[in-house]
């Protein structure tokens, strides 16, 4: 992951969808539309809809992650167009996806929220596209190691 690119399944994380700007950190999805993502347990802000089970969350991280994604989406993923801690929405492998750019230190990272029914198919497409970059699936252990 440090040198090439890795893919992890972080679907367990809690997600809430709301129309009013919450008082805690959020991702803006559009006018009057916000998303909260975090480690569970996470209490929902009032009026928010729990979408934890709606979205699978995949984490694609590593220097080649942009190259992998550019084979699957028309979204401009350059540092200028989607800097760290910015988000965007577009199709990825033909499924609607919310791209959350969240680098791990200096390693570029993309959290990909994909509607659950498409997630397995998207996972397969990412692994296939990542073949030329030696993409490896990784678990939470490796993620811990990377953070420290």
């Amino acid at each position: 992951m440090r040198e090439q690119v890795g893919l992890a399944d972080l679907s367990y994380r809690a997600k809430f969808d709301t129309k009013t700007a919450p008082s805690r950190p959020f991702w803006p999805l559009g006018r009057n539309h916000f998303l909260i993502v975090g480690e569970p347990p996470l209490s929902p802000p009032s009026g928010a809809t729990d979408v934890t089970s709606v979205y699978a969350e995949l984490l694609l991280a590593g220097p080649s992650s942009t190259a992998v994604l550019s084979k699957l989406t028309s979204l401009n993923l350059s540092d200028a167009a989607l800097p760290n801690l910015f988000c965007a929405q577009a199709s990825l492998a033909h499924a609607h996806t919310i791209f959350l750019r969240e680098d791990i230190g200096s390693i570029p990272g993309f959290r990909l929220l994909i509607s659950r029914e498409y997630a397995e198919s998207a996972w397969e497409a990412i692994v296939h596209a990542g073949h030329e970059f030696h993409l490896q699936p990784f678990g939470l252990g490796a993620l811990e190691l990377l953070r420290n």
Partner: peptide, 9 residues
């Protein structure tokens, strides 16, 4: 507030 929860259930 309309939320598509199809995949969630």
């Amino acid at each position: 507030h309309i939320t598509n929860v199809t995949a969630g259930y």
